[in-house]
Structure formats: C-alpha cells, structure tokens
Computed example of a mutant assay.
Amino acid sequence: ATNSGCKILEQGIYHNLLLQKIQLFEVLGPVQPVVAVAGEDVVLPCYLKPNISAVDLHVEWIRVQIDNPIVHLYRDHEDRNENQVPSYRGRTSLFPEELKKGNTSLKLYDVRSSDDGPYKCFTSLVSVAVGTQPVISNEGYKEGGISLVCESKGWYPQPQVVWMDSEGHSLPAGHTETQRDSMGLFTVRRRVIVQETETNRFTCRVLQQELNEMKETITNIPGELHIFSINKGGGGVVVRWHGGFSQCLLFCLLFVLLDAQF
C-alpha cells in the first residue's frame, strides 16, 4: 500500500455513533471506527431502529469539525448536493432501494487520506404544514387611517405576511408578530394602516415560498374610511373629520342633523 494508504489503515475513518431519538425511531451507527484503504470504496453504516422507511425523510451526512460540512444530503426524495464539500463531488451515494428498509448508510468511493476523520449521519422528519385562510379584523380609526389586522394559524415553516392594495402593490405595514403553539406551528399576525382609495379594497396574502403555498383574503371597507368624532363642550359641538372629502355632502348633512339634536 502507499504511504497515504497506510495512514488510513492506521488511523481509520472514524464514523461516530449517533444515537438520536426522532419521534418514534432512532438513528444508529457503529461504535467502532470504520477502516478503509486509500483508493478503495467504503460503506459508512447508518440504520433506523425500527427499520421504517426513510424514503420520505431528510438524510444528511456531515463531516465533523470543518466548515461547510455537508458530505451528502438527501431531501424531498432526491440527492441535493449543491452545497456539498467539493472534494466529495461524485464520490458519495446512498442506497436508494435500501432506504425503504431504513438503511441510510453512505457509500464513499475512491477513499483518500483527506477523508480521514469523524462523520455523522442525521435523519429527521421534514415537517411542513399549510396554515389557515387569513382572517382580517378591522380595529377602527388609528393613526390617521383604518387599522386592519391579518392573522393566520398553523404554518411550518414560518410564512411571510404581505398587505396589498387593490392593484396588487405592497403596502407598508408593521412588523409580523409570531407565536408558536404546543406543536411548534406558527401563528402570524400583521397590522396595516390604510387610507382612502377608489375601491377601499385590500388584500392580505400569507405565503410560504419553500412549500410554494399561498393563501389570501380580500376585504372591502366602503365608507368606513370616512370617520368623524364628536366632542360636546361648553362652547358647543366640535366635529372633527378624519377621512377624505369625497363624501363631503353626506357629512355636511349628517352634521346638520347632529347639530339640531344638540
């Protein structure tokens, strides 16, 4: 054997035992180091206990204690090795038929001395959840306009919340408030202050780009942006108009009727 081959024989390729409980199964590997000779192929064992299918799971092999440690990644029923350590390109594979039996072992081709070191096998459920249809609540007049609140529950991962006008343009809104329930699912909530428009129609859109899922709700609030307040004092009645002027005639008529009552 070459010197580099002897080095691997002496030091071995250390595949650490990973004992990780994931809901109803465990991920197991060998306690003793796996030994290989430079230039040969080697299998790094990893199994699920009980031997349930790993076809729908997330399987990740990493190299311990190095930057960008991904050696092999299986997700969404296919290999995703775009961010793999460059030196492993084209030299790793799982056993597709064995995944059904809970075998998540990694085959490493053409072993090199630089491969020497500890590895870990992570297997986990890829949890996703699509939330509820957004619910829009009207909080009334605040800060010079109408305050609308959009809320949606039961998302994972956390989605985005976007407010839009009737033409689909994004509106400036407050920060998105988030909460997580006992199942780890997200409830998202976001407020917006809206001004009078020709239609007074606004849309709340909740989207999760990773899942390619989107839900939206449209609200129409005709007339609700034309708000006034009445203060009665010793000097008479003071009426403050908080909306636009498109309904001025109606407002003036209402003012006359109110003034007559006072």
Rank of each mutant, 00 (worst) to 15 (best):
residue 115 D to S: 03
residue 101 K to I: 05
residue 102 G to Q: 03
residue 108 L to G: 05
residue 84 Q to S: 01
residue 85 V to L: 12
residue 72 H to Y: 02
residue 101 K to T: 15
residue 121 C to K: 04
residue 115 D to V: 06
residue 71 V to P: 05
residue 93 S to M: 07
residue 101 K to Q: 15
residue 116 D to W: 08
residue 85 V to K: 05
residue 123 T to M: 11
residue 129 A to K: 06
residue 71 V to G: 11
residue 112 R to K: 14
residue 112 R to H: 10
residue 70 I to M: 15
residue 107 K to H: 14
residue 124 S to R: 15
residue 70 I to C: 13
residue 113 S to W: 10
residue 106 L to R: 00
residue 72 H to F: 14
residue 70 I to S: 13
residue 104 T to H: 01
residue 95 F to D: 13
residue 108 L to T: 05
residue 83 N to M: 07
residue 126 V to S: 13
residue 88 Y to I: 06
residue 106 L to V: 10
residue 105 S to P: 14
residue 113 S to F: 04
residue 101 K to P: 07
residue 74 Y to P: 09
residue 91 R to H: 00
residue 92 T to E: 07
residue 113 S to P: 00
residue 96 P to Q: 12
residue 120 K to V: 11
residue 106 L to S: 05
residue 114 S to V: 11
residue 123 T to I: 13
residue 118 P to L: 04
residue 124 S to G: 14
residue 113 S to L: 07
residue 78 E to N: 08
residue 125 L to C: 10
residue 120 K to D: 11
residue 123 T to H: 08
residue 97 E to K: 06
residue 128 V to I: 08
residue 117 G to W: 01
residue 85 V to Q: 03
residue 98 E to G: 00
residue 101 K to C: 05
residue 98 E to K: 02
residue 87 S to K: 10
residue 128 V to N: 11
residue 108 L to R: 05
residue 74 Y to C: 01
residue 82 E to R: 08
residue 129 A to R: 04
residue 114 S to C: 08
residue 73 L to C: 11
residue 113 S to V: 11
residue 83 N to L: 13
residue 102 G to F: 03
residue 129 A to W: 05
residue 105 S to R: 03
residue 85 V to P: 01
residue 75 R to W: 14
residue 112 R to Y: 03
residue 114 S to W: 07
residue 94 L to I: 05
residue 97 E to M: 02
residue 70 I to H: 13
residue 77 H to G: 02
residue 125 L to Q: 13
residue 91 R to G: 03
residue 112 R to N: 03
residue 84 Q to H: 02
residue 101 K to F: 14
residue 84 Q to F: 01
residue 89 R to G: 01
residue 122 F to M: 03
residue 102 G to Y: 02
residue 96 P to K: 09
residue 78 E to I: 03
residue 96 P to L: 11
residue 122 F to Y: 14
residue 105 S to N: 11
residue 92 T to F: 07
residue 82 E to D: 10
residue 102 G to V: 04
residue 112 R to E: 15
residue 125 L to N: 13
residue 100 K to A: 14
residue 94 L to C: 04
residue 76 D to P: 04
residue 87 S to R: 05
residue 100 K to F: 07
residue 118 P to W: 07
residue 100 K to R: 15
residue 92 T to S: 10
residue 81 N to R: 13
residue 93 S to I: 00
residue 87 S to T: 01
residue 115 D to C: 00
residue 72 H to S: 08
residue 118 P to G: 06
residue 110 D to A: 05
residue 111 V to F: 12
residue 109 Y to K: 15
residue 75 R to L: 14
residue 119 Y to I: 03
residue 103 N to I: 09
residue 98 E to A: 04
residue 114 S to H: 09
residue 88 Y to M: 08
residue 115 D to A: 00
residue 97 E to N: 13
residue 89 R to F: 11
residue 108 L to M: 11
residue 97 E to T: 05
residue 121 C to H: 04
residue 124 S to D: 15
residue 103 N to S: 09
residue 92 T to G: 03
residue 88 Y to A: 06
residue 82 E to P: 01
residue 85 V to E: 09
residue 84 Q to I: 01
residue 127 S to G: 00
residue 92 T to M: 06
residue 84 Q to A: 02
residue 101 K to G: 10
residue 119 Y to L: 07
residue 85 V to N: 05
residue 89 R to C: 11
residue 99 L to Y: 00
residue 123 T to S: 08
residue 126 V to M: 11
residue 78 E to R: 13
residue 87 S to A: 06
residue 73 L to A: 04
residue 98 E to S: 06
residue 127 S to F: 12
residue 97 E to P: 00
residue 126 V to K: 08
residue 74 Y to H: 12
residue 96 P to H: 12
residue 92 T to K: 06
